[in-house]
Design a protein around this nucleic acid. Sequence first.
DNA 1: GCGCACGTCAACCTTTCGATTGATGCCGGG
DNA 2: CCCGGCATCAATCGAAAGGTTGACGTGCGC
Lengths: 216, 216
Amino acid sequence: MTDAVIRLLLADDHPVVRAGLRAVLESEPDFAIVAEAATAERAVELAAEVDVDVVLMDLQFGPGSAMNGAQATAAITARGPGAPRVLVVTTYDTDADTLPALEAGATGYLLKDAPPEELARAVRSAAAGRTALAPTVADRLLERMRVPAAALSVRETEVLGLVADGLTNQAISRRLQLSLATVKSHLVHIYTKLGVESRTAAVREARARGLIRRGG
Amino acid sequence: MTDAVIRLLLADDHPVVRAGLRAVLESEPDFAIVAEAATAERAVELAAEVDVDVVLMDLQFGPGSAMNGAQATAAITARGPGAPRVLVVTTYDTDADTLPALEAGATGYLLKDAPPEELARAVRSAAAGRTALAPTVADRLLERMRVPAAALSVRETEVLGLVADGLTNQAISRRLQLSLATVKSHLVHIYTKLGVESRTAAVREARARGLIRRGG
DNA sequence: GCGCACGTCAACCTTTCGATTGATGCCGGG
DNA sequence: CCCGGCATCAATCGAAAGGTTGACGTGCGC
């Protein structure tokens, strides 16, 4: 796959963003955009049908979509070796976004404010199997390793995200297929790690630290 | 200004999005992109210096920017007649985003998931001084006029703000020199007005509607 | 192999929250 | 003047949340 041409699949629900990625990447002679997907499901299909080296994957796919970019990433990389590499290109760099994506097997994580050269460099890295992370994402990961106490686990971040959406512990347990006891257990750990003692305070603290996204 | 060519200024901090807008709009023969801005401040400058008919304005300009899109919109439209029209093109359609932008004098409000044809149509509408709103935004505005009950009193907003800061009812009562009963009474009214049934859900809803400040 | 973090769950208990009902006083518009 | 919205407070009760303790299996690193 390290031939002359790198075959790309663009997965983003915004036509404008797809056009922008296409415009930026098509100017590179060794890139070829072979397919576009406006939904996560379609991206998974195309990644299986078409011969693709790197998938440029957005994480958010609008309220009308059941699957998000992280799930699509997992579905694509689950096919093991030979599967295309997934390079996440999105707007947010909170732990709530980056951790699930990287855990799903993304080879890289870039922000949409990245300049075109950086984007092209990341695509070539991903095609070669090398990881390409945005500086802020890399910083955040290193900080996690340096101070592991202040970092929430993926599961904890997931629970806290639902808390921030206003769900009760009961609702969270149903949504995540957990027992109520487990949800409370996660919350106790979250409170300890964040140094707070209530759900609303935890949401506020997590928002301030960039652990969860600020928007709804 | 209703001549043959509509002169456009693109204001967005994402190079990819600017490239996408350029790619989509340049294919229209009567559009001419005369300038691009990566910051809100630069957009205001350019809108004053360059002869522009319509500004395509993003609302979010990254954490490094002091001015947001709504403020830039206000600065541009403040120059009265002869000033370029501002067409907001952004990702979010919550009240917290749309209301300030429209109040700042935006002629239109589109979402980035809009198809290219709709985008071109909105640009022509804006150039002619006609308002162009995304369907979801228009729905939201109509709903707001139909049900004006969703306005919180000053005191209720104050209480909800402290709830959003993670304070307990006890702490709020002390902070505001109230009895615990009064705080709970306010919260009941807030829940009724917002159509929710828990403090975290109320915070989320208020944030989405722009009733309380988004930042911590 | 062992320790450790993580995720999972249970039982018990205390505190807080939310729902209900009801009351008082103030103020402004019809 | 009276009604309604707002702000204030009280009492009560059930539900939810939070604290504590303890437990089990898994996976990872030393």
